[in-house]
Amino acid sequence: MKRKVDKKSVLELGKERVVLFDGAMGTMLFSYGLQFNEPPELWNLLQPEIVYKIHHRYAWTGADVIQTNTFGANGVKLKKSGYEKKMEEINLAAISIAREACPVKKYVAGNIGPTGEFLEPVGKAELKVLKKAFKEQARILVSGGVDLISIETMYDLREAIAAVEGVREVASVPLFVCMTFEKKPKGYFTIMGDEVKSSFRKLKEAGADVVGANCTLGSQEMIDLVSIMRKCTDLPIIAQPNAGKPKIIKGKTVYLQTPTLFAEDITEMVKSGANYVGGCCGTTPGFTKVINEKMNKLRIKKGPGV
């Protein structure tokens, strides 16, 4: 279902104030009983009411942008679980659930994650196959009426660029790209060795509107990375850290970081130049709520660096 709403682009909004993205979807679905080996995106068809509930809670605790449950809904990844024929259905269902769950003035981001395949020399995936998969997913996301596309958790710049190019062949919507960087003694790098500055330059050339980082790092480390990212590009910056490193206590996965500490770190990221902030693994609507309260005090007229 498409609704025509007159609202400014999320990029325009980002020039006026800091924009809040939602938090984790995957770890939330697990807490609702998602089984391992079950593609989380399948719940758009099997358990839409739970996906709805998660989106709804994020939207009502203050997220401006809700990301569809389509992180692994590209053809290459779905093929591994045997659901590639349901690709279109899964993506379209994800968009209607997100639209239904949040007020019209909020933004629905079509979420795209990596294929999970590795390119040479680590794996044998072919770049053109990956690019085609991203293009196909983006075509469906745009046909379903997303306000923006958010590419996340890219650990190989070549795949990230393939995703951006694939999207750009079919869509002119605002395009956000998050790489996932690890902290190494010599700085921040993807596992494939891509560093921040050249990655951001190439992503911009390929057509990204906003660049940044998500996952892997906790909020403390992300503060440091944001200040580095700010120096590496003139594009707006997005940061979505994890709620620390998960611990297993008595057979249960626990994220020890509290929403309050996380939100304090988020405000530091904003001071260091992040224009768009949100949470990755382990974050919940409880985190969004606290961040939103803190940000209400902090929201600035003009995002830095733009």
Binding site: P121, V122, K184, P185, K186, G187, F189, T190, M192, G193
Partner: peptide, 15 residues
Amino acid sequence: EEGSCFLPELVLGAE
């Protein structure tokens, strides 16, 4: 370990 090489170099070297 010290971040001077990455997964591709390590995989190629091991192979």
